[in-house]
């Protein structure tokens, strides 16, 4: 157990979306910057860097997290999932992603990465989540384009399809 010096870069190893990867980071490097500029996983977006807008929401060891409020060195050894993990394979979309497209639940798409991570986590843990619960979880995100209602519809639609066992829309 050694102190990582502020002025040096250190190797950070994570399991990112199923793959073991590593990069270099000084202790103060935000996890957002590490993911985006070190690991080149640019799907996670940065909207406020103070934990309110939700665009940077990811999963760390299975739990939701604002990646702007975490530092890369904190996640050394952790399992990280980002929006890039959600599609079943390249060129296809998940049930939730398809529902977003169908319901016009995104416009500019900038906040979408974080919203998808929150809703994917919710529907995984609570398949029966209803509108109120979805709204409550969605309230951890700011979206300026959609007015939110299409996102709620998409989530309800995805939840229903997932309950029916529809694997990828």
């Amino acid at each position: 157990m050694t102190t990582l010096a502020a002025t040096e870069t250190h190797t950070v190893r994570v399991r990112l979306n199923g793959r073991a990867v590593e990069g270099r980071a000084t202790p103060r490097m935000l996890l957002t910057d590490f993911l985006r500029h070190e690991l080149h996983a640019t799907g996670t977006h940065v909207g406020c860097e103070h934990g309110v807008c939700g665009a940077c929401t990811i999963r760390i060891d299975g739990a939701l997290a604002r990646s702007c409020l975490a530092y890369a060195v904190q996640v050394d050894g952790a399992t990280i999932e980002t929006v890039e993990s959600l599609a079943p394979e390249r060129g296809r979309l998940s049930v939730l992603q398809t529902a977003f497209q169908r319901h016009h639940a995104l416009q500019c798409g900038f906040c979408t990465a974080g919203i998808l991570m929150s809703l994917d986590t919710l529907l995984g843990a609570e398949p029966d989540a209803g509108e109120d619960r979805i709204r409550e979880v969605l309230a951890g995100h700011l979206c300026r384009c959609t007015g939110y209602q299409p996102i709620i519809r998409a989530a309800l639609d995805a939840a229903a399809r997932l309950r029916e066992g529809d694997a990828d829309a």
Partner: peptide, 10 residues
Amino acid sequence: EDPPLLTGAG
């Protein structure tokens, strides 16, 4: 526009 934006490829 949507598939890239939904998969983090924007």
